[in-house]
Design a protein around this nucleic acid. Sequence first.
DNA 1: TGAATACACCTTGTATACAAGGTTGAATTC
DNA 2: GAATTCAACCTTGTATACAAGGTGTATTCA
Lengths: 235, 235
Amino acid sequence: MTAISENKRTQNIAETIYQRLKQDIFNFQLLPGDRFSETAIAQKMQASRTPVREALYRLERDGYVQVHFRSGWQVRPFDFQYFEDLYDIRTLLESECVRRLCASDDREDRLAGLMTLWCCKDEQRESNSSVVAFLDEEFHFSLVESSGNKEMVRIHRDVCERLRIIRRLDFTQAGRIGITYDEHRQILQLIMDSRCEEAISALSEHVEVSKQTVRAVTLHRIQEARQRYRQQPEH
Amino acid sequence: MTAISENKRTQNIAETIYQRLKQDIFNFQLLPGDRFSETAIAQKMQASRTPVREALYRLERDGYVQVHFRSGWQVRPFDFQYFEDLYDIRTLLESECVRRLCASDDREDRLAGLMTLWCCKDEQRESNSSVVAFLDEEFHFSLVESSGNKEMVRIHRDVCERLRIIRRLDFTQAGRIGITYDEHRQILQLIMDSRCEEAISALSEHVEVSKQTVRAVTLHRIQEARQRYRQQPEH
DNA sequence: TGAATACACCTTGTATACAAGGTTGAATTC
DNA sequence: GAATTCAACCTTGTATACAAGGTGTATTCA
């Protein structure tokens, strides 16, 4: 009801439903393995099946849900290998961009913005974990954008989008914010000094830690959500 | 009419239309920049707009067409920067896989199939350009599959799929077949010898040549198709 | 009591009707 | 003659009706 009525002045019910379903999956209101039908979603969203189907097929291509022929839809079960594969790709793409940055002459100009943001005094550091999570993503996006390869940017954003469902849990852990600042600063400094391999190592390690941290947290959160679900089942 | 009536025993009109539209784009029967409506496609395919829309949204996500709000669809104009970006990503992904192969102990087993196929005697070489084009793709797929990273495989296949529209013109050029065989053999040999950087160089060069060859051919073919179109316009 | 079968219901796939708004071209006015 | 306005048509977005087939349950038979 809400999402539809605050219908952005133009029309894109399909887009709205897409966003809302993704949110539901991200917030573990739709749990991995859950099954549901197009009609049920349509009723919940107070819309017809047409935009619902459009949204679902987008989510299917994104890898979040899968359709069973004439037998309903299902939230794709969690697969940690899947996320680790994505992390590997992220590392590969960003490493390549670091390599190109180190070899470029104008890296000072390209990195100016990031330098002032991440190499600041301790008291100027952001402390809100949501904001830092956002800035962290921007940091990695910027690295890839510096490559000038639009398709690489697109793929990287896509990979990060898939990872966001678990990454956003990262900064809820104590100490992660400070570590992130330190590591970003170190990476930038190494790039500026053209110490390419060291920069790539630092970056890879940075991502690896994030991966490990998230793995434990996510398992915990899914467990938690499943508990809640069992206590007050809606159907 | 044909594509629909030979309707695979089950139903997937949307899938059929998707394939057929993509073919039309690949064969330059739908030219970059062409505009068309859902209704027109539906009539041509003798189906309703519903599966047509599903197919078109898939093609949009694939990057082949774009929708103009309440103003029809358009085949996305050719953008060589786009294809060169894709070639760069391909090179990056495959290089990484070569690197991993060189570092692995069981590369002999993993590459056994490719070795017998590409390091054969001259008289055993395939001469049909379509077949070689297919085998060439399989060669590069196999390299990436050896990484064991399913998502990297998926992205690589996706990139290759986007490139196929221009790559398949490659092997129509005289001499390309022999060169492909020679280069594949060289790359495999370098990997087997664990000469990692040399293997990557050879691979990168191999892809680069393909890129250059295709660029000229494609420009020519589009020109050609546009001529035909002007001579016998259907509308 | 258990297994098998049939039927009712539910699912997605497809076709079609309707709505809202963009485009185009002709008519009208200056 | 040129510019502007308005209306008819065409476009996609959405809702709904219908079709084909999968699922599960209840009933029946052994």
